[in-house]
Simulated assay, not measured.
Amino acid sequence: MIDSVQSASALSLTRNLGATASESSLGAGLTGQASEAARQALSFASVMGDMASGAVTDLKQAEVKSFEGIQGKANTREVVDAVMQAEQSLQTAIAFRDKIVNAYLEITKIQI
């Protein structure tokens, strides 16, 4: 299950590469604030990618700690801490997803 989340993260990274290529072709025509806005958009994409990678890492660590707890190699406190961290990361990712979907829906309601 975690690997499917990671593959979704990989898809977002390939989209980012396409944005970089189009940004570099458009970058020659952009000056001043428009160029700065394009760099900030790329920065937002990298932040979102890092957040997704961090969530996947937290989920994998929680899974490992859970198996170690079952095997008796980790104490209960370590398992609970890892699972709570993974849950917090997942809830944050879900909240971002919900906000992005709501923003998209609001944009689609705008009449041109």
Rank of each mutant, 00 (worst) to 15 (best):
N102M: 15
A34Y: 08
K73N: 12
G32M: 06
L30Q: 13
V5S: 05
V83F: 06
I2S: 02
Q111E: 15
L105H: 13
A41N: 07
V5W: 04
G27A: 15
A41Q: 10
E36C: 09
R15Y: 09
G72P: 06
E63T: 09
S24A: 13
D58M: 04
A74F: 05
F67V: 08
A52G: 05
A86M: 03
S89F: 00
A45L: 11
A86T: 01
S7Q: 08
K99N: 14
E87N: 04
Q61T: 14
I94E: 00
I110M: 15
M84A: 08
Q61E: 10
E68Q: 13
I2L: 07
G29C: 11
A8S: 08
E106L: 15
N75G: 15
A95V: 01
Q40H: 10
L13T: 07
T108Y: 13
L30M: 15
V64N: 05
V5I: 11
S4D: 08
Q40D: 15
A55W: 00
Q6A: 10
Q88M: 01
S25A: 09
N75L: 11
K65Q: 10
K99T: 11
A93L: 12
T14C: 04
G54M: 01
D81C: 04
S25P: 03
A52D: 01
L59W: 00
Q40V: 14
M48Q: 11
A93Q: 05
E106W: 13
A93C: 14
L90D: 00
T108V: 15
E68T: 03
K65M: 13
S7C: 02
Q40K: 13
S4N: 11
S89W: 00
D3C: 06
I70D: 10
S7M: 04
R97D: 06
S9I: 03
S24T: 09
Q61W: 05
Q91W: 01
T76L: 13
S89G: 02
S35K: 10
T31S: 15
S25N: 08
V80R: 08
S24Y: 06
A62S: 07
K65S: 12
E68F: 08
Q85N: 09
L105G: 14
S46M: 11
S12Y: 09
A82R: 01
E106F: 14
V80E: 10
S22Y: 06
S35D: 07
A45Y: 02
S43F: 09
Y104L: 15
A103F: 14
I112Q: 13
V79K: 04
G18R: 05
D98I: 07
G18N: 12
A41I: 09
T57R: 03
E87P: 00
D3K: 08
Q61D: 12
E36F: 08
V56H: 04
L11N: 05
L59H: 00
E36I: 14
E87A: 02
K60N: 05
M51W: 03
E23M: 09
V64F: 04
K99I: 09
R39L: 14
L13A: 14
